[in-house]
Each structure stands twice: as C-alpha cells, then as structure tokens.
Design a binder for these strands. Sequence first.
DNA 1: GCCAACGTTGGC
DNA 2: GCCAACGTTGGC
Length: 223
Amino acid sequence: MTSKYWLLKAEPDSRIVKGKDVKFSVDDFESVKTSPWEGVRNYEARNLLREVKVGDQVLFYHSNCKNPGIAGFAEISKEAYPDYTAWDPEHPYYDPKTKQDSPKWFMPDVTFVARAKHLVPLALLRNIASSGDADAAGVPYIGLEGVEAIKGMALITRGRLSVQRVEEDTWRIMRDLAEKGGWDEQAIGKKKAPAKRAAESVRGAAKDSAAGSATKRRRRGPG
DNA sequence: GCCAACGTTGGC
DNA sequence: GCCAACGTTGGC
C-alpha cells in the first residue's frame, strides 16, 4: 500500500536513557531542520518507515508529555536506510540483537516544514471521536467528514503505534485545525474515565529474561 | 506516579 | 505455535 501522509511521534520532554537525553521537541526539530528518524524498535512501525518516500508529508506529534498532540509539520527528505544507532552500544537505542551484516532497523530522514500555529491536542481529537460533535468541541468547520476522519485515525484506534499512516483527508483536517484553532482548551482539556483494573494480580515470579523488549521510542537531534 | 493497553518473550 | 508473564507505552 502506498501512503503519502504519516504521523510520527517524538518526545518533547527530557528523558534520560543510558545517560543520554532522548528529547526531541518541535523546537529542537525546527532548529536542526533535518534529522534521521532513529530509534524505532517496533516491527510494524519499522515496516511503515520502509514505505515512506521523499516528499511524503508528516504530522509531527508530541508524545509522553503534559500536552500531547500534533505540534508541527514535516516531510520525508530521504528514504529509509539502516538505523546505525542500533549497533552503537553507547547509544540509547542500541539493540544488541542486531548484527552488523543484517540491519534490522531502518530510519528515513525527516525535514521540518512548519510549526502548528495551534498545537492540535490529543484531548480534542479524542473528544471529537467519542462525542461525534465538532460543533460542541468548537470546531464546526471540520464538518461531518472531519469527525469521521478523526474517528478513523490510528492515533485514536491504535494509541501505541509510533509511526502511523494518515489519510489525505485526515491530513487536511489536521492542517485546518492547526491553522484555525477555535476549541476551548478548558472544555476539551480534561476528561476520561479510567476503567478499573480487572484482576487482583498475583504477579511476580522471578524471571531473569534479560532482554528488555525494545518497542518503539524516539529520539533527539542529529549526531 | 498510576495503571490500562498491548507488543514481546520464552517455556512448553 | 500457543499463550501467560512480562515490560513498555503513554495518557492521565
């Protein structure tokens, strides 16, 4: 399948991994302009990265932070090539199981295009997806198609995936939201009724499985 | 800091 | 190749 629009997650807040900060905010991105998108350690995300083409458009998402949401726009500037950080024992994204002669992880280069004039909060998208009401959310201009597009976003349905496909109409809606804003931060900023944990958990057998499954993750500036 | 959701690991 | 345990993601 070919896609021309993608969503990539990065962490704007400092987080130290192996002594190094993996923070990469829209500010960082804007200042470096182009960065290898290193550190993706999840197969599905990796497979998607191998599909990206030069010129494809990217929604730059702030994850694992106070105000998660779409913070900017970018584009693919180089197709995926082996992620050398997987071979560097000093690197936060080192993967001891990757052999030099058979790269397992890949990364494209991504170039900054623009900041979102209004950061499009995940809370807004969730609010619209669950209520189905763009008017109440303060963004009547996205229309019913906008609501449907948001409902279908992987961001809503597949929370944890760090590289996601985005439909063209969805991309346009995100661009409009980022440009026009209009939602009430207070109104959409709160919410969510957490479900209760089911079991009484009898976890805890000692297990030595070193491993440490590396899932996804994301990065900082260029080396 | 908590904890739900979910991908990965590894014993069988 | 199943599946329970485990570890991570990431919103809140």
